[in-house]
Structure formats: structure tokens, C-alpha cells
Amino acid sequence: MKVEIWSDVACPWCFIGKRRFESALENFEHKDEVEVQWRSYQLDPTLPQHYDGTETEYLSEIKGMPQQQVRQMFEHVTAQAAGEGLSYDFDKIVVANSFMAHRFMHLAKEHGRMDAAKEALLSGHFEHGEDIGDIDYLVRTGVVLGLDEPEVREALAGDKYSAEVRADIAEARALGVNGVPFFVLDRKYGISGAQPAEVFGRALQQAWGERSPLTVLPGNANDGATCGPEGCN
């Protein structure tokens, strides 16, 4: 079974949703047969490479909300994150465009390290105040993940993997995704938001239970010649 997860590195609920989904998957009896694929999404593609201000100021500006209301929202999200073992620090967050971080994740995917890259960037952004729009930070992260430093630096200095990021975002639009995290199970079921682990668990069970083995239609045996590991007949 394949689970695709559209999310943004700059989305606080995406990290919480990742933890809740992982909790459900860990308790799923068929977890070893589930392929998880991260897909790119940007909450604010118009954000400049870096925003000269705090996360509170940024959200207050784009949402037209008083800063006190934004801080109250942060307190709620921080409490929810703590419930999943995460230590959010909104005062440390560096506001930056996430496009380069998504490109980095596609590079990590080429080396089978996409999930580890997602974890590192979300933690770096929300817990440690790292700059997800900074090439040097992404290069350091890549080295920790076992990627080749010159390869990472060369890829991010150019335009590599931009098409893949844009394709993910376009596909999300085609599927009707207008918020993240968004989970798609076998292209049959969609789950919006950082739902409780129990919701993800029930969805995994339902999607797995409705998977049907391929039905082979009857035909003329004389015309149905095939080749297999043991030869042809």
C-alpha cells in the first residue's frame, strides 16, 4: 500500500501530523508493506527567500491578525506538539521560503533519505531555529544524512529538482488539496490535517481491507502463452 503525504517544511501541523501518522503506522500489522512518499507543497510560495521579521510579525501581517492573537495560536500549537514529544520554539523560527528545502528533499529522495531529510528539516525549523532557506544549513544537513557535500551544494546552487517540486504542487492542486498535511492512501482515500493517531489507524485498516487481489480473467489456454522465471510455455 502506498501513502503519499503532501506537506510543507514551514507547516507546524505537518510535523505534528507526521508524528501521529508514524504512531498509527507503528501499530499497523502490515506496516512493512506500506510505502510512504513525501510530496512537496508550499503554504506561501510568494514569500521572499527570507523575511526580515519574526514568525509572529509575518503571520500577523499576512493574516491581518493582532500579534497577541497569533501568539495565542502559537501557544495552542506548541502544546499540541509537546503532546507528540516535539519542542516547538516559535521565537527562534527563521522565516524563509521553503522551495529550496523541498528541492533538497527531492535530492535526498534520490539517495533513499527523504524521510530522514523531512525529519531533520522540520526539527531544524521548529525546534532549533535553523534557516531552511540557507544553502549552508542544507548542505550541513545533507552531510549528516550521508549525502555528498559537493553534490548537495551544486544541486542547490542551480535549479535542480525545481521541476519535481512544481510537479508535486501541481498534482496537489489537481487532487483538490488546499491545505496540509494531506494524506492520500492508495490514491483512493484522502485525509486532511494532523488527525489523531486513531483516525490514521482506522484509515490504514480500511484501505488495507479493501485492497483486492488481481482478478485474472479466463481465456483460451492455447493463446495465453507466457514467460516466467522457469522459462516460456
Rank of each mutant, 00 (worst) to 15 (best):
P66W: 07
Q68W: 02
Q72S: 13
M73L: 12
M73I: 05
E75R: 13
H76R: 15
V77E: 01
A79H: 10
A81L: 03
A82N: 11
A82L: 11
E84I: 02
L86T: 00
L86P: 06
S87R: 14
D91F: 07
D91E: 15
K92D: 02
A96Y: 10
S98K: 05
F99I: 03
M105H: 02
M105C: 00
L107R: 11
L107Y: 12
A108M: 01
E110T: 15
E110L: 09
H111E: 14
E119P: 08
L122M: 15
S123H: 10
S123Y: 05
F126I: 02
F126D: 05
F126Q: 07
E130L: 14
E130V: 00
D131I: 04
G133K: 04
D134K: 11
I135S: 02
D136W: 06
L138A: 00
V139S: 08
R140L: 07
R140A: 13
G142W: 08
V143T: 11
V143W: 00
V143S: 03
V144H: 06
G146K: 12
D148C: 12
P150H: 00
E151H: 10
V152P: 08
E154I: 03
A155G: 01
L156N: 06
G158E: 14
K160F: 01
S162Y: 03
S162D: 11
E164H: 10
E164V: 11
R166F: 08
D168S: 09
D168P: 06
I169W: 03
